[in-house]
Structure formats: structure tokens, C-alpha cells
Design a protein around this nucleic acid. Sequence first.
DNA 1: TGTTAATAAATTTTT
DNA 2: TTTATTAACA
Length: 724
Amino acid sequence: MDVTEILDTLNTEQRQAACSDAASMLVLAGAGSGKTRVLVHRIAWLIRAESIAPDRILAVTFTNKAAREMRNRIESLLNIPPQNLWIGTFHGTAHRLLRRHAKEAGLPTSFQILDTDDQQRIVRRLIKSLGLDENRWPAKQALWYINAHKEEGRRAKHLGESGDPFERQMQEIYRTYEDLCNRSGLVDFAELLLRTLELLRDSPELLDFYQRKFRHVLVDEFQDTNRIQYAWLRLLTQDNHNLFAVGDDDQSIYSWRGAVVENLQHFQRDYPGHRLVRLEQNYRSTGNILAAANALISQNQNRLGKNLWTDFQEGEPISIYCAFNEVDEAHFTVNRIQRWTEQGHARRDIAILYRSNAQSRQFEEKLVALGIPYRIYGGLRFFERAEIKDALGYVRLVSNRHDDAAFERIINTPVRGIGTRTLDVLRDLARSERVSLWQAMEQLIADEAIPSRSRKPLMTFQWLIQSLADRVDDLDLATTIQAIIEHSGLLNHYQKDRDGQAEQRQENLVELVNAARQFGQEPDLDPELSLMEQFLSHAALEAGEKQSGDSDDCVNLMTLHAAKGLEFDLVFLVGLEEGLFPSLQSLEDPGRLEEERRLCYVGITRARRRLILTHAESRRIYGKELYPRASRFIRELPVELLEEIRLTTKAQPTLPSGRKPAFFQDKPGPGAQFRIGQRVQHAKFGEGVILQSEGEGAQSRIQVNFTDAGCKWLMLAYANLTSL
DNA sequence: TGTTAATAAATTTTT
DNA sequence: TTTATTAACA
């Protein structure tokens, strides 16, 4: 087999990594250094040069998208689809193992996956049923508690006795939640991972089998792994240490979600004899952009260390625009976008990156006003939409009557006269008898213990689900879902236009049937499992596209987190202000601040050719006017790389030193006596010193260095300064 | 049972 | 400011 083509296109370091003969390998892959390339070529190398059977390679990623891309690229590199190659997300792979070994894992074969929304509903309801005050015990907090413990591998039974009443209460919630999930056959995202870890750990035969099976394990985005994921990788590679990890500590931006960057160090400790390769040549950005990124990230402590370089030109300087407020910021940005596209550049190569989703609105408004197509990343995804989840709720209950999450969701959707009181009785009964809500309902109906006014709708519901199950028995997946949507009354329910979304919702339901039909044609389905179950799992694990592609050539708007892994010719990094980016919550904590800085690093390194940073002097946040200082991240960039953009109406005449601009000296009114060096008082900013001025008349602006608020450019006309 | 008024909360989100 | 959730109401 000719393997040169696998190696030809790689640089020295990439090649070292791809065809290494060391068991374990840690690849520190800087932004834009070709990390996916290395992974793909490594797999190709293993198959072609080392004759490893594809089914003995496991490659794990974090997102479905990354997994898909890797699969596609391997296919095109090898020219054939590598059969039985295990490429998938951590959760997808865990799910696959749990389905295969449900019994050993202590799960019913028909277990269902809870997404975050389902999980929160369950916890909220559970807190209620424990008779707790929802204000004192917010579901969100309990959710966080549960997930954090699961991500650390701790079950409720592992938690020690505590004298702390808060801790005790949380433990009880956790215990009850675990109990309920077990009874209903429900598995949340964290549970998928933890369960799989326990499965392998507690079953020596299985562990042995998979250790032998997977001769090579490869991981993408290794810096994002949490404790469970790392423990799981270690377990699988315990005997041969064949772990190939690719990551970048400088792009670790998910520690708040349980990612443990230290896993990079743990790797070095736990895999003695590993080889370490740094990929530092960047194939994406101009020299200036990389210099800025390097300078910024060098401010962080405890890095493994890495310096990006490129063969490309220096390129243009990095621009900074200081806007008056968030409206001006959007105005400026969108004007620049228009200018750029008029020069013949594609919109799809432009991105506006912000710290928080709330910032998108201003930009949207301006884009709409100028008729520039755009796309926002990060809305509801297809399988997360209410109507879709309702429909799937019926499907779930039909296939597993004990699925309490599904039961809760659809018991009164569409409304069928089952009110809160009846539900409370049901929940109490279910809890005290330790049965599912469905069983509680059956019991309640049988006992005739409730008034017939509440009993009747329950019976109707029971009959409905039963009849759906009968009707659907021998139908295929798509027809089943179609039938369920029609006969459950959901379609009818969503025909009523309450919020102008009726049409969209109905379309989505039709689309769901299409999706189900298409799903039946998928090539890599497991013939051992029912199609329905696989479809439901698919819906939970891969929530679908964020948005249907309305137009191909769109300006991209997204958060910095969402931008990781993407690249654009022109990038606007907006809202660079203290308290916004870095975020308010991170200002006090050096660790969190470093993560913000890494986030900024990620943002900068998204840009291929041109990077424009903006910040505003005044910004409305939650209805309050704030006057934030420019972000420290701007100050951390080398001045020589930067170019400040000023929108002056007229060119400023160069004046002999000592002379001040005329308007500055004899402008009538309260501003008359302002001059450079003058101490002034501002209503919001307090005292400061005038540094310089620019512009004429109504456009004239002055720069004032305030004692407390820092340096600001102000419109002289609105600044309302008094001299001191 | 659906509407409305009040109230609270408000980063980031791969699965 | 916006948004979601809940309590009150007709």
C-alpha cells in the first residue's frame, strides 16, 4: 500500500504525530494548525500503513459535527468508507455501549435519553413533590448540583452524611431524582457517561473485550474532557496505552461545564513514555492577527506553552473602533460589512462575535435595515422545539408507559381537563407507591378513589395511549409518528393560532414525519435495536440544525463559544468592555479571568485576514445605562499591531505645537473655556483631564482621562462638562 | 381554561 | 430592557 499520499500533504510536526510509533501521543494543536487533519491522517495511517482493522479504532469527539467531518474526510482520503470504524461523540459512543449492554448496565432495554430540558422539568416537579419551596430550592441549582456530582463520578449514595441542611436537602433531591430515573428508565446526558464508566469498571469481561477490541483510541478537543470522560479513556487504554489525544489548553473555554484542562497534565502523568508534538504553524491567519493572539494569551499563567507562527504576510493591522454606544457599535459594524461586501467579498466569510447572546439584537436590527442576509447561531434546534418534543412525548409514552418525563409532558397537552389537583394526586401516589405515573394513574382509575369529573379524562387519556399503541403496532416509523400526531390531537392543537406560530409549528410536525422517513434510510443503523428507539435517541443526542438555511450567503452572528472551530475572513469582535468581556462574573476570580482571555484568544484566531475590535463608551444592559471601561484585553495587545478607527468628519489640520484648534478655544456657551490639560467634571464619570480633541462643530469629540472611569472619547455637544 | 398582571432574573451550552 | 414564570381573575 502506498502511504506517501497520506503523509505528503503534512508538515514535519503533523507527520511526526500522524505516523508516530509511540503508544500514546499528545498533540498540542494551536488554532488553525490542522488538528483535524492530523487526526484524520493518523487514522488513515493506522489503517493503511499499520494494517489496523477499522473496527479496532475508536475516535471520539465532542460534537456530532466534528464526528461527521472526520468521517467524511477519512472517506475521501482513503477513497472508500471505512466500514465499522467507530467515530462518534462521547455521548453517542456511550449510548451505543449502553444499548448493547443495557442489561449489564442495569438499564431496561428501552431506556430513553433525557435532554437538559426534560431533566429540568423532572427536577422541578420533583422539588414540588417533596413539598419544598421552589424559591428557596430553585430547580436550576439542584440540576447543577446533580450534574456536577455526576460529572465527578459521584452518585447520591457516595455522598457522605452532612450536617449542613442545604447539603442534606440537595442530597435528598439527588437521591429522589436517581430513583425516579431508574424507575422510569431514563438516562440524562451525564448519566450516559457515568453509566458507561461504571459498566466497564464493574464488568471485567466487558472491559477486557473492549480493551482488546480498540487497539487505538483517538480523542479530539482533549482539553474539553471532564473527569468521567478522562477516566473512561484511561480505562479503555489501560493495557496498551494507545491513546492519541489532540487538544489545545489555550482554547479551553468550557471549564464551567465541567471540563478539566488539567487532564492534559494528567495525561502526561498517566501515560509515561508518551510523545508530545506541538503544532504551531498556523494556516489560517495573517501575521498580525497571530501576533495579537500570541501576545494576549501570553498573559495567562500555567500554560503548556505554544507560539503560533505563519508563512503568510503580516496583513493589515487590527482595527479598534470605540463606539458611543451599542447602537453606534452596530451601525459601524454593519456599515463596514456593507463596504466589505461591496468590494466583492462573500457574506458567509464574515462573522460578528459577541460574548453573550443578548448582544445580537442591535446587529440584527441594523442588518435588517440594510437588507443584509444574516444567520444567527444558537437558537432553538429542531428536536428542541415544543411541538416536536410534544409529538415525541407521545411516541415515547407509547413505547414505554413508565416514561414519567414523557407522561408529564403530554398528560394535558392538548388540554383534556386533567388539572393540577389531579396531577398532584397522581404524583403523590406515584411517589409513595414508588411506581410510575402511568401505574399510579391506572391504580387511581381502578380504585375509583377520585371524583368522576377527574376520573373521566384520565380514562380517556389511558384509552388514547392504548389505542395509539394498538394502531401503531405494525406500522413503520414514519407512519407511526404521522398517526400519533394526528390521533393524539396535537395537530389540531397546533392549528389554533395563538402566537402567530401555528403555521411554523404545523410545518415542523410535517417535517418530523419526513425526518422519521429519512431516518429509516440511514446506513448505519443497528439491526438489533428497534428503529423507533434509535430515532428517539437520535433526537436527543443530535438535536438537529440550529436553523434551516434560509440563504447560503449570510453574515454569521454567534457567541464566542459557538465560534470555536470556525474561521472567517473578516471577524468583528464586539463589546470588548470590562464587565461584558471579560464578563462581570469573572472579574474577581483570576482563574475565570484566564478563561475569558482564552475565549478572546479563540475569537481573535477565528479571523483569517481582517480583525476589527469594537467597544462602546455607553451601553444599555438590562435597561440600565452603563459606562464601561474598554476591556483589558485591548490593552494587552501590542500597540504596534493596532490601528484606531476614528470617524472624523473632516481631516484634522496639523497644528503647530502649542496652538489649540480654534473651535476649542472660543466656542461659546459652557464649553467655551475647554482646552487640553483642563480639569473637568462630568455627571457620570466624575473628574478628569482633557487629553485631546478632534472634529468640528457638532461632530467634535474630546478625549478625557477620568480619575475613576478611565479614558473616554465624548461628544463635546452632549458631554455636559463643567470646568474645574 | 385561557388571558392578564405582576414578579423575578438575566454569561457561555458541544451532548 | 426583555423574557419567562406564576398568581390572580373572569
